[in-house]
């Protein structure tokens, strides 16, 4: 059980790194728009406009 003396501090280092990373991401503006990012993952593909013509056919096939 003595390993706890090493493992817990190591875990804390990871936590500190995690917090640091999160704070960086927040300050970088990556969380500024939570609504949109949550929606974007469900949105049609990004290069949609290129394939605009195929679109109606594809949606019919899927349904």
């Amino acid at each position: 059980m003595d390993s706890l003396y090493l493992l817990i501090p190591v875990a804390l280092v990871f936590v500190a790194a995690g917090i640091k990373l999160l704070l960086w991401a927040i300050d970088d503006g990556q969380y500024d728009d939570l609504d949109k990012e949550a929606w974007r993952i469900l949105a049609p593909e990004q290069d949609e406009h290129i394939k605009a013509e195929e679109n109606p056919d594809r949606s019919k096939d899927e349904s």
């Binding site: 917090i19 999160l22 927040i26 300050d27």
Partner: peptide, 20 residues
């Protein structure tokens, strides 16, 4: 905008702390 980020930072730190 800066209040929003500040609140989010607090929330994030509290979340990590809570897990630990």
């Amino acid at each position: 905008a800066s209040d929003y980020r500040r609140d989010l930072r607090r929330l994030g730190v509290a979340g990590f702390g809570m897990m630990q």
